[in-house]
Structure formats: C-alpha cells, structure tokens
Design a protein around this nucleic acid. Structure first.
Lengths: 219, 219
DNA sequence: TAGATTGTTAATCGATTAACAATC
DNA sequence: TAGATTGTTAATCGATTAACAATC
C-alpha cells in the first residue's frame, strides 16, 4: 500500500465523500459518475477522479463508480474497518456529549473508559461506563488496548495529561483543549479548536458586512 | 478596508496567531520578531510576515512586532471587538457544553437564548438562560438582534431548521450537524463535523502503522 | 551609523483544473 | 460498435518559501 505522502487536503475530503456515498447507498443508488457526484457535492469532477486515483482505480471507464464498493473502499482507507478503543479524559458536558454520540460507535469508535479529577463526577455513569479517577488512567490504557484518547479538559491541565499519555504509549489523541499539545510526531494528534472555528465564522460575518458597505460607496 | 479575497488558508491561521500572541501578552513580553514567532509556532517566518501583510504593515523594520498592538489588530480582523448575540438550537449535552464554555463569552460571543423541541429540556435552565420551545425561535431571533445560530441538533432536523433560520434573516450559522446546510451564500456557515475529524485521526493512525510495517520489509 | 528585521518581489513548490487517450 | 466515463498527463492557478532592498 503506497498510502504514503498523500496530501492533507485529499484526506480532509475523504470523510465528505464517504458521507455522500453513504447517502447514495441509502437511496439504493448503484452507480455514480464523477460528473454526478460533482454536481451533488459542488466540487469539480476532475478533483474527484484525482482524489480517488491517489488510492488506485476504483472506477470503470464508461460506467463510473459502484457506490457500495467505493463506499467500502473509502471506509477502509479511513480505517473504519477496524474497532478503535477510546477513552475520554474530562467528563464534563463536552466529554459526555461525545461519549453519548452513538454514531461514533456505529463506525467502530468505542469508548471503553472515562476519567476525571473532580470528585463530583468520579463514580458517575456516562451511558454504560463509569467515570474513574485520572490516576487510574495509565494502567487502564495499558491493560485495555486503548488506541485513542479524547482530551476534553481545560487547557491548563492538557499538557500534563498529554505527557502521561505519551508515557503509556497512546497512539492518537483527539484534542479538544485549546492548546498545541507537546507530544512527539509518532503520536497522531487531531485538534478540534472550537474557538478557532468560531473566530473564523466571526471573520466571515464581518467581512460580508464590510463588503455590503463597500459596494455602496466608491472608496 | 480591502479585506477582500484573502485566502481561507490565511484566515484559518489567524486564530492560532491570536492565541500565541495572547500567551506572549500574558507573559508580559512586549515585542516579537517573525523569527521568534516562527520558532515558537513551527511555521516559517516568511509565512508569518506574508500573512500579516495581507492586512497592512503591523511591524517595524529593525524592531519586529509590538505584541499588544498586533494582538489587538488581529482581534479586530477576526471581529472580536464586537459583541455577538447567539442562540443555541438543540439543548443536548453538546449544546449545554457550548453554552457553558465561558471563554466564548470573554471574547464577546454571548448566548441569549436556547431552543429545543424536547419536553424533557424545555423550561430547564442552562446557566442563566432558559430553554424555550423551538417554535419561539423565529420571533426571538428577530427581536433580539441575533447574529449567530449554533446548530446542535440531529442531522435529520438540521435542514428544516436551517430554512427557518434563513427566513428570519440569521447572519451566520455555526453548524455541528453532520450535513451540508442548504442555505444561500449570503449566510455564513462554519461547519464543525466531528466525525470527519475523528475519521482523519483514524486515517493517520493506520497510515503510521502501515509505515512501520513498510520500513521493515522492502517492496 | 551599523544591525536588525520588516515589507515585498521573485522563485519554487504543490494543488487544482483541463484535456484527452485508453477502455469498458 | 458507439457512447460514456475513467485514469492520467499536461496546463494553470494559487500558496508557500526565499531573497533582498527599504528602513527603523
């Protein structure tokens, strides 16, 4: 498999393809051409074909792409044919929301444990899992084949916990703390910086207002 | 202001600059050069200077950038000198987490209302705001100068609500539903597709495992 | 002034789009 | 076969990096 050095831009588009293909699948549509998908998704057909061909040819000339097959293949590329064992660190509202989000489970992402430092939540149950004290986390990670740690703690706590996670050989961190984690490159980090996202929205909101003004008066 | 057609890539980097400058500010550091910032943030000094110069010269030759000034200017570019009135639609765990996240408030993003269809949450209080029935939403938006709607509802409900939001002239939607919203371009949408993010992490996790295998055996 | 560092132009690199031959 | 549509090469476009003159 020469998955090597495929650009981030391509990878970032795969989940969206996967989503649209899932919908076509639900609608019992058997085949789709890059042209149809292009119209549906508002990206160029050329880009769609280029993207897919990074991973080998999934289509057939004169026919297009088989929806079921393409869906499965993209799923495999994204690792969705594996079960991922996850823990959550920080059992606040956000942590609880993520654990409760059942769609993750459907895709093979399963929460095995939850950890916090607050006596208010330790011992509580989130769905079927009990919140344990953070001190128990390293042992739990080692004993339960945990792949992914989800970090939903205040940013002041995040760096310290990240170091512990490195020590117990976590493979990946899904980071919701508003900080760039100090971990070696061997550990994969995906950041969800919510306030960055909100700031982008804010920028676009004001830009459009500025534009409106600008069109009215010259200079 | 010729904020026009500044690339998305640049905008996406601004919140991160803002964050690092905020930290320097906290540390009472007065000035910073693109070179120092480059070392700190692991981006090229050239990119930093190019990015800032999209908005005019914030620095001074031979000196660098004044941290306080640059912080404020980037804040203004991002619209953080305004108050933003927001509502949340969907008062589940995720909605509650976002409303409770006080840092938004510090940056001028203030939740004014919360809406849901479930009798289980209508009437409940989230912080200081009461959850109202979704039917009350359009009037509330019109009467309270709401800029941003935060959408944390299941994807089946999202499209319909988006249409209502368009009708009551919302300016922007922060969308957590796993769907591309059917709204005109005049309404700004920022998507937070959590499962897309998790899939990217999954991809990178497996890619690194493949690499490990590959380095062992040739071909 | 000399040294430092920006602002900005030019060079490079990478990603997207267009075009078309291959082929089902 | 003829028509459709891919896979892939070439052309274009845009973003990043390098270089350096301007200037504090």
């Amino acid at each position: 498999m020469d998955d090597k050095d495929i650009s981030n831009a391509v990878i970032a588009r795969l989940p969206r393809y996967y989503r649209y293909l899932g919908e076509l699948k639900n609608d019992r549509i058997e085949r789709v051409s890059s042209r149809e998908l292009s119209r549906l998704m508002h990206v160029t057909a050329s880009q769609i074909r280029q993207d897919f061909n990074n991973f080998g040819g999934f289509g057939q000339q004169g026919y297009g792409y088989n929806v079921d097959y393409l869906y499965d293949e993209i799923g495999k590329i994204l690792g969705l044919d594996h079960i991922h064992n996850m823990i959550i660190i920080g059992a606040g509202n956000l942590g609880q929301a993520l654990v409760g989000y059942m769609n993750f489970k459907n895709r093979g992402f399963v929460f095995r444990g939850a950890f916090d430092i607050s006596q208010n939540v330790i011992g509580k149950k989130i769905g079927s899992i009990e919140v344990l004290p953070l001190d128990d986390m390293p042992e739990f990670v080692r004993n339960n084949n945990i792949d992914i740690a989800v970090l939903t703690v205040p940013k002041t706590a995040a760096a310290g916990i990240a170091k512990e996670l490195v020590e117990c050989r976590i493979k990946a961190i899904w980071n919701f703390a508003h900080i760039d984690l100090p971990v070696p490159d061997s550990i994969k980090v995906e950041n969800v910086h919510l306030s960055d996202s909100l700031m982008k929205l804010s920028y676009n909101l004001h830009r459009s207002e500025d534009d409106t003004n600008t069109t009215g008066a010259a200079e």
